[in-house]
Structure formats: structure tokens, C-alpha cells
Design a protein around this nucleic acid. Structure first.
Lengths: 201, 201
DNA sequence: TAATGCACTGACCGAACGGTCGGTCCAACA
DNA sequence: TGTTGGACCGACCGTTCGGTCAGTGCATTA
């Protein structure tokens, strides 16, 4: 990839992620990348083509550290704890990509957004589901909860942190907005043990 | 409110919620409302003015049935269960408003979106926090978890259902995408009891 | 040295944008 | 009955949009 093309892609990614497709003009991207607008059309056939290139680029770099965590050995509970932390850390470390894809899912969930989400998150989601199922098979987790349901719950909790942290930061008694690690640990703990006071059986 | 103004507001709300601010033109709104574009500017000073009116209108109608649930008598656990169901039902019944506000939070979380979210969700959030705190004071919930944290977890889970249901519908073994009630019950159950197999103390 | 190919540009296009303006219509009121 | 004021419209404004195109500068190759 040439430097010109790279700077275009980078500028477009930042702008699209921050403002959305329609709010960003080709002139803005050209100015941000310090190239002429015509140059954009030399590298990409259309605005949509550039947008898809940005999306494709954002999806490529999601080979994450937590892939190995899921496949590791040892107690599922411990793997789950480490995964939750790493996953949330990854999300927070790549806000641009996450925002890009979240926006796409929100606005086109029934069309290409769904397909995109499946391609990007699908395999990962299935791996988390498999982890929960392994936990159930090992007798670490209760068998009467749906693994996909719990996986969705965990990912929703992490996504919720990412989406609402700015709002939560200004809510009373919510001091965890600045500590993803503590949040993820809290999620794991509640997910495993619940919040109800345990009564002897 | 007159019929013309109402149809404008309604058309604008639908279009803004579905496509976002920049993707919607005044001409589109005028056509959708079957009025002239000039008429839009007779009722609203600018596009932004109309957008804010839509936002204000969407925020007004959120006096929900679950307000009384939170304030009711009886075991907190039962109130929590009923709240989770009703809250998710409300979200799913008003997708337009929810999408509108979600978009605003996502794109302007650090500016007016934050203020908006506080005004719309702030009081509700605090009530849910208060419910958890009451549960802790009554000895129904463990005291060593932060109430605001758990409240955020619950709301994130419900929001996650709303946001990802279209994607989830096409994931294997995830059959709960069409049943908000069952999902909410599942969230409550996991939140209360966790998924770990209980070992005798 | 001449020719080829490509990154890149300024000037430009028709269309659509947000917004304005002069004017029509009609119910309310004197 | 004459007047007023607000709902409403068609035509239009300047600007910006996505996109095009002829042309320039500069390596690489023959």
C-alpha cells in the first residue's frame, strides 16, 4: 500500500467513524488527507467504494490476543475471566473500528450490516459460545442456561461499557467508567455468582 | 398542535430515526409529510431546529408503565423481574425513539448527547439504582456489589437485545431473539443467581 | 533520448442541498 | 364587508455535493 492511499484510508476511517457516512464529504476527506479530491477518485471509484474499503480495512485487524485465551487450557472460569478483560480492553483500544462497525450494524442491521457483523463478530461469538458449552460439559456452569444467551449477555455488557461510559461518567456513584479491567472483572463475577444472597439449600 | 405541524414532526421523526440527521434532507421530510419545503421553514427556523423538536418530542413520551413497578411494594427480586420485562418491552415497542436517542448518544456523547441521555435516562437510571440499593438494604442482594454497576449491567443487557437481535437471529442456537419476555427473564435469573454451579460453603 | 504508465491536480459539471421570498388562500374578527 | 394574520406554496438563491476530465510531473523502460 502506498503512502498516499494509506493516508486517504486513515483519514476516511477517522472521519467516517466520528461523523458517519453522510456527514462526511469527499472534500473533507481530501483535505484531511492533504490530497486533492480528484486523487480520491483516482484510488477509489466512488465514495461508497472508499467507505467499503475503510470497512474492510477495519475488519482485517481484529485478530486479537483473546483468540488464544479462548483456546487455552485450564478451568473455563479462569479463561472466561481473562477473556472478558482482554475483550473489553481490545474494544476500548480500538474505538474507531468499533464505532465504525457499530454504526453500520445500527443503520443497516437487516442488510449488509448483518452480513458484516456476522463476518466480523460471528466466529468470535461462536468461540465464546463454545467456551460456555465447554464450561457446562465440564460441570463448571449450570446446564440449564443457553450458552448463546450468556455469551450475548457478556458481550452486551462490554459493549454497554464502551457505549455508555461517557454518560455513566457523569452519573452518581458510578466510578468504574475509567477502569475497564475492574468493570470486566465485575461482569465476570456477577455472571458467575449472581447478586442474590445465597440461601442454604 | 395542528395537523400539518404534527405530520411534519412525525415524518421527520421516522426519517431521522431511520437514516440519521445528515442523510435526511428537508425535501425528503416535506415529501413524506406531503407539504411544501417552505412550509417546513414556516414552522421551524432551520433543519436543526426541527431535529431538536423531534428529539424533544421523542423524550416527552417516555413516562412508562415501569415507573410504578419500581415504586411498588413487595420483594425487590420480584419488582426487578417485572421491571426487566417491562423495560425491554417498552424499548422494543418504541424502536424509533430509542434509535433516535441512541444515535444521538453515539455521535455526540461528549456534548449535547450526554446532556440528553442524562435528562432522558438519568432519572430512570437512578431509580433502578435505588431499587438495587433497597434490595441490598433488605438483605436480598449482596452488599459487596456496586448498585450503579449492576443497574448498568441490566440496562446494557436489554439494550444489547434491542441492538443485536437482528444479527443474533441469524446466529446458531440463539432462538431467543423473538421473545423479549423470555430474554428479560433470563437476564434477571442470571443476574440474581449467576451461571456457576453452586458449591456448598 | 523517446515513450510509456501512473500518481496526482485544478477547473469544472449537473444535481441537490439548506434556506428565502413574494404571493395566495381562508378563517376570524371588526 | 373590509382587514388582518397565519398556513401554505412555487420559484428561486448561493453553496456544496459526488463525480469527471484534460493535463502535469516524474519515475521506469526501450
Amino acid at each position: 500500500m502506498l503512502s498516499g492511499e494509506c493516508s486517504i484510508l486513515s483519514a476516511a476511517r477517522d472521519l467516517f467513524a466520528e461523523h458517519g457516512y453522510d456527514a462526511v464529504s469527499m472534500s473533507m476527506i481530501a483535505a484531511e488527507a492533504s490530497v486533492s479530491k480528484a486523487n480520491l477518485y483516482h484510488h477509489y471509484r466512488s465514495k461508497e467504494d472508499l467507505y467499503f474499503a475503510v470497512l474492510r480495512d477495519a475488519c482485517d485487524g481484529n485478530e486479537s490476543a483473546w483468540q488464544s485465551i479462548l483456546a487455552a487450557e485450564g478451568p473455563v472460569v479462569e479463561r472466561l475471566r481473562r477473556f472478558a478483560r482482554q475483550h473489553l480492553e481490545d474494544i476500548c483500544a480500538n474505538p474507531t473500528q468499533v464505532r465504525l462497525i457499530m454504526r453500520e450494524v445500527a443503520e443497516h442491521s437487516e442488510h449488509r450490516g448483518r452480513k458484516l457483523a456476522e463476518e466480523v463478530f460471528g466466529e468470535d461469538f461462536r468461540k465464546v459460545v463454545a467456551l460456555f458449552q465447554e464450561g457446562q460439559a465440564r460441570g463448571e456452569f449450570r446446564a440449564d442456561v443457553d450458552a448463546a444467551f450468556v455469551a450475548g449477555l457478556l458481550l452486551s455488557a462490554n459493549m454497554g461499557f464502551f457505549q455508555w461510559r461517557e454518560v455513566m461518567r457523569h452519573m452518581p456513584t458510578a466510578g468504574y467508567a475509567d477502569d475497564p479491567g475492574a468493570y470486566a472483572d465485575g461482569v465476570t463475577r456477577v455472571l458467575l455468582d449472581g447478586i442474590a444472597v445465597r440461601t442454604l439449600p
